[in-house]
Design a protein around this nucleic acid. Structure first.
Lengths: 152, 152
DNA sequence: ACGGATCATATGCAGTTGTAGATGATAGGC
DNA sequence: GCCTATCATCTACAACTGCATATGATCCGT
């Protein structure tokens, strides 16, 4: 998969998210909490591929905006229970709708068969739910003898 | 499209690229030059979504490794002609094969219909050739009144 | 010949990201 | 009670990224 493509798609979502008062990570957090609350911030960070120290500010902001609740878990006060508020759910839904509308526009503009586009969306949906570790290659050795020089 | 997915896929490629003595940007440059040489570094940077000042070191390394040729354009000596060497082509091909093999493994592991997977790959291929600007949303106004707070 | 533009290159700055470590609070096993 | 582990939080450091700027070489139009 092509790296600049991923970067371009990410960059394209930013204005839509900004228009909904969200940042990329804020949106990712809301999307994840949309499916189910979590019991610790560390678990959330691991699931969304974020750094546990860096999402603290994200969660701070979301909490200030009234989009999430964040309360010590009575069963284990080391962790925080995180869940969407009603406003958070609304915000997430509206941002998601806008982004998906733009995706539909982009995909429609490709002029590809509807079956391909539908297949694409289905695979993408499943991929987005997969564990990030499942994308890693096997421990296969590289082909041939290659120099070990690498970019600084 | 889901941002963490893109990040996970990118991260998953890194070990394969490293095993082939390449970095992400080095690989992206090789991929682009595989299709056709370019006449200026600035044009290359724009096409691959890189910063023109930052790819200098990338090109330096690729040139040192004998993977690209980089010669002043006799028609306009302000620019450099960039092209793959035979070794560069081999390196690019082998890295690409390894990455695609891993992609096939991941996609096969999803257990989805072959038609969906093929459609996915076809759409992905077209998307990767699209102009990054085409992904940007229209100048539509956001839905409803939303707070303007944003993440620091 | 001059002025403006383009190209590669180097550099600075601010923001982002990944990693590591420290700290305090909390929990569980012995 | 003590030791170890976990969690959130804070901080430092290095690398990366985007943008801006400056410089020298080159090119083109007047």
């Amino acid at each position: 998969m092509i790296v600049p493509l991923g970067r371009a798609l990410t960059a394209a979502e930013a204005p839509t998210l900004a228009a909904h008062g969200l940042t990329m990570w804020g949106y990712v957090v809301l999307l994840r909490l949309q499916t189910m609350p979590v019991r610790t911030q560390a678990a959330l960070a691991a699931e969304i591929g974020a750094d546990k120290t860096r999402i603290i500010a994200v969660l701070d902001q979301l909490q200030r905006d009234g989009l999430i609740t964040r309360e010590a878990d009575p069963a284990d006060r080391r962790g925080n229970l995180l869940a969407l508020t009603a406003e958070g759910r609304r915000r997430c839904d509206s941002a998601q709708a806008a982004i998906q509308a733009n995706e539909q526009r982009v995909l429609a503009g490709l002029g590809m068969p509807a079956a391909d586009v539908e297949g694409f969306l289905r695979v993408l949906h499943v991929l987005s739910r997969a564990e990030p570790d499942s994308f890693l290659p096997d421990n296969s050795s590289p082909e041939g003898d290659l120099p070990t020089s690498d970019l600084p």
